[in-house]
């Protein structure tokens, strides 16, 4: 999956599709591969369950974390920091941008589109077939078009993050394959990967492009 080695990776999608968990995993995997990585939480719409929640873990692993100025506080305003501009001046650092959900969240990318586009970023459209608003490939495409319109960037790849939380089984992933194929065909975009919980990967070896991930986004009673 060469596209994930691109120095600029933008993670977009419907809210609740699994963007943050995917972005955190990608940052950790790239770091483990020896890459200099920065993870940028560009989510200006979601007050809870966001990349900035993992700032401590990221710093510990040597990943630079960039968050909106007031992430995790009660200041409910979409204020971004200038640090992303600084990072974008460095062509060697890999930057993973975790964007807010839907067109409302994607609008924040528009601010950086002119800088990002000449660098030919990988733009990942994260989808889950188990989310009611994107329950058909047509509906997922409709959301993608709204996101592209708001963000001024076009998706380059699809990432299948289909899951049912704790109820996810290998069958959940298998059940999404037809949906993903159809979305790839409708959108004309190639599949980057199926991001699946690492313990399920062994049951899915017959499927190409499986990317095992850990679950980091949790509720307070998950110990």
């Amino acid at each position: 999956m060469k596209e994930l080695e691109n120095k600029r990776v933008i993670v977009l999608g419907h809210y609740g599709s699994g963007k943050t968990n995917f972005a955190v995993n990608l940052a950790l995997q790239r770091r483990a591969a020896g890459c200099e990585v920065a993870l940028c939480d560009l989510d200006i719409v979601n007050p809870y369950f966001r990349s900035a929640d993992f700032a401590g873990k990221m710093e510990e692993m040597g990943i630079e974390m960039v968050s909106p100025s007031f992430a995790g506080t009660n200041v409910d305003v979409p204020a971004l920091t200038g640090r992303l501009d600084g990072l974008l001046a460095n062509p060697d650092r890999q930057i993973i941008v975790d964007v807010g959900g839907d067109d409302a969240g994607a609008i924040a990318v528009g601010r950086y589109a002119r800088k990002l586009l000449p660098e030919e970023p990988t733009v990942l459209y994260i989808v889950s077939a188990c989310r009611p608003i994107t329950d058909t490939p047509q509906a997922a495409l409709e959301i993608l078009r709204e996101i592209e319109y708001a963000s001024h960037v076009k998706a380059t790849h699809i990432v299948n993050c289909t899951n049912l939380g704790k109820e996810t089984t290998a069958q959940t992933i298998r059940g999404s394959l037809e949906y993903i194929d159809e979305l790839c065909e409708l959108s004309g975009l190639p599949l980057c990967c199926h991001a699946v919980r690492s313990d399920l990967a062994a049951e899915l070896t017959d499927i190409d492009r499986i990317l095992p991930v850990e679950i980091f986004v949790k509720v307070p009673w998950d110990l």
Binding site: Y15, G16, S128, C130, R131, P132, D135, L164, E167
Partner: peptide, 14 residues
């Protein structure tokens, strides 16, 4: 069928 939803979305769809 089973779907994965936020609590807020669940209230609206229900």
């Amino acid at each position: 069928e089973r779907v994965l939803v936020k609590g807020n979305e669940a209230l609206a769809e229900a």
